[in-house]
Simulated assay, not measured.
Amino acid sequence: MRWLQLYLRSRRVPLALGVAIAVIVLAWVMSSTYTTSTTINARTASLTIMLAVVALGATLNGADDALDHTASVNWPLRRAGHLLIAAAVITALLSLSALTDVRYEPLALVLRNTAGLLGLTALGTAVFGAALSWIAPLTWTLIAVLPFLGPSADVRVQVASWLTQPAGTTAATVCATVLAVTGLLAYALRGGPLRPASETAPDR
């Protein structure tokens, strides 16, 4: 299993996982302390999921781009597995709140937002690289949590604010699914773009 340890370390997974856990716990503590609701609201949950996704999104590229594209490794399968495990980890961490009096729920909203934001991050990684993959999920989340964008019968609003729409909203679910599938395929098949050697060479 040494290859797994090396793989996780090369992608800074322990650090990213620590950040994701800290963000989820901090949002839970804040909601427990300053609200009387037993359910963490959609805006807070969306921001929390986005920050956790961005943290793990940094692990989608390794330090050596050439190694990440070598033909000796089945990279599409490994990338897809990495992404799916990241989604499972974030969902599991959020679901642990079900053991407490303040919860991230409903589960359908947690699953939808995690899948959509992780797909958006993976798509950003495939196009711009992991270092800039946070831009799209951060921007869309900040738009979605705007006070004037809430539950609406307008499909355009439902798409723009899909993160904060109620679970079961068709347009929001479709939007998240498209982002998840597109991001998964783009990242699994392409990975991140090759950076100039000067950017990946170790410091001397």
Results as ranks from 00 to 15, higher is better:
Ala22Met: 11
Val23Phe: 01
Val23Gln: 00
Val23Ala: 06
Val23Ser: 01
Val23Ile: 14
Ile24Trp: 04
Ile24Leu: 13
Ile24Phe: 06
Ile24Met: 14
Val25Glu: 05
Val25Ile: 14
Val25Gln: 07
Leu26Ala: 15
Trp28Glu: 01
Trp28Pro: 01
Trp28Met: 03
Trp28Asn: 00
Trp28Leu: 13
Val29Pro: 02
Val29Ile: 15
Met30Cys: 12
Met30Glu: 12
Ser31His: 13
Ser31Asn: 14
Ser32Lys: 02
Ser32Gly: 06
Thr33Gly: 03
Thr33Gln: 10
Thr33Arg: 14
Tyr34Ile: 09
Thr35Gln: 10
Thr35Glu: 05
Thr35Lys: 13
Thr36Pro: 00
Thr36Met: 11
Thr36Gly: 14
Ser37Trp: 06
Ser37Gln: 14
Ser37Glu: 14
Ser37His: 13
Ser37Leu: 11
Thr38Cys: 03
Thr38Val: 05
Thr39Leu: 15
Thr39Phe: 11
Ile40Lys: 02
Ile40Gly: 01
Ile40Ser: 00
Asn41Ile: 03
Asn41Phe: 09
Arg43Thr: 13
Arg43Lys: 12
Arg43Pro: 02
Thr44Cys: 05
Thr44Met: 12
Ala45Gly: 10
Ala45Gln: 12
Ser46Phe: 09
Ser46His: 11
Leu47Tyr: 05
Leu47Met: 14
Thr48Asp: 00
Ile49Ala: 01
Ile49His: 01
Ile49Lys: 00
Ile49Phe: 03
Met50Asn: 04
Met50Asp: 01
Met50Gly: 01
Ala52Glu: 02
Ala52Met: 07
Ala52Gln: 03
Ala52Phe: 02
Val53Asn: 00
Val53Trp: 02
Val53Tyr: 03
Val54Glu: 05
Val54Thr: 08
Ala55Trp: 05
Ala55Val: 05
Leu56Ile: 10
Gly57Pro: 09
Gly57His: 07
Gly57Ala: 07
Ala58His: 08
Ala58Asp: 00
Ala58Gln: 08
Thr59Asp: 05
Leu60Ser: 08
Leu60His: 14
Leu60Glu: 10
Asn61Asp: 15
Gly62Pro: 07
Gly62Phe: 07
Ala63Ser: 09
